[in-house]
């Protein structure tokens, strides 16, 4: 394998990790709330803007930026839950789905009105150091994204399997009525699950803003669709498999581009999804909707 192809695979891995970051939140929300979401791209955007303004105030303090994006998108998650999910648990699923699409449009347009349509620079938050591992080149931000995805997957997996809080979330995701019968506050638990998914996307927004060195109102549009595709590949509700889906989509896109053109990027990702689902409708999961 020549250096060029390896560099394209590394590019694909890095892009895939970006998709994976957002897909983690999608998988958590679908897993716990039980409804699909199309607002994650806009939550990412809100996360990026939150950290942008905190960086301006704090002099590029990464920790403050992360905390701000996490908290603000947690609050947005609460509002989103009340608007798009809380009233629709007994309604057909498409109602909340359309509601999330509408909510995403509202967030995007509000952001353009409040923050302006121009891109906000997020320069030099992290020093652009390049690490050379043989013929592989990785920037510091790419390494950060990689580590964040791994840490998030581990934390979320432990949360869902090893803590009583996680077991409550899992119970709500599996059977709301049964969870209510054993004394779990289903509404509150589902809302917390949604907030966790949104806050993960918010933190991802900070990293994506740093990675692409800008924040702007439409930055989540394409990413949202790719994140949903990644989660679909992972069986919709599995956190580690959603991350794997994101990485595979990123790598597939970049290998395709290496041999053709970037204009065909979406053909490779969605083509890969369609072929995968034809042969394995459950994605990488054993059963669609099952938590791995």
């Amino acid at each position: 394998m020549d250096g060029y192809l390896i560099s394209q695979i590394v590019n694909g891995l890095c892009l895939g990790l970006i998709y994976a970051l957002i897909a983690l939140g999608v998988a958590v929300i679908i897993g716990i709330v039980g409804f699909a979401t199309f607002t994650q791209g806009e939550i990412v955007m809100i996360g990026a803007y939150s950290s942008y303004y905190v960086f301006l105030w704090s002099g590029n303090n990464l920790i403050y930026g992360m905390i701000a994006s996490f908290m603000i998108t947690w609050i947005i998650g609460m509002i989103l839950y009340k608007v798009c999910y809380a009233k629709f648990f007994d309604s057909p699923e498409y109602i909340s789905l359309i509601c999330t699409i509408g909510f995403s449009m509202l967030l995007k347009n509000l952001a353009q009105i409040i923050f302006g349509a121009e891109k906000k620079p997020m320069l030099n938050i992290i020093e652009n150091k390049i690490y050379h591992l043989g013929i592989i080149e990785l920037s510091r931000v790419q390494l950060m994204v990689f580590i964040t995805v791994i840490v998030m997957v581990i934390i979320l997996s432990l949360l869902f399997t090893r803590t009583s809080w996680g077991l409550k979330l899992k119970a709500v995701s599996q059977n709301r009525e049964a969870a209510a019968l054993v004394g779990i506050n289903v509404d509150k638990t589902a809302m917390i699950g949604n907030c966790i998914g949104c806050a993960i996307a918010g933190a991802a927004g900070t990293l994506i803003g740093i990675y692409y060195q800008s924040a702007y109102a439409t930055m989540g549009a394409t990413l949202s669709m790719k994140a949903f595709t990644s989660a679909t590949l992972g069986g919709l509700t599995s956190v580690p498999l959603a991350a794997l889906g994101g990485i595979l989509i990123g790598v597939t896109e970049n290998i395709g581009i290496a041999f053709s053109s970037a204009s065909f990027r979406d053909i490779f990702s969605f083509g890969f999804l369609i072929i995968m689902l034809i042969f394995k409708p459950t994605g990488f999961g054993r059963k669609r909707g099952a938590r791995a």
Partner: peptide
């Protein structure tokens, strides 16, 4: 070439850098 809504140009850049 690349499409108008492209955000990640790394693959194109690697191709041309090579």
């Amino acid at each position: 070439s690349y499409t108008e809504n492209e955000t990640d140009f790394s693959s194109v850049i690697s191709k041309l850098k090579a």
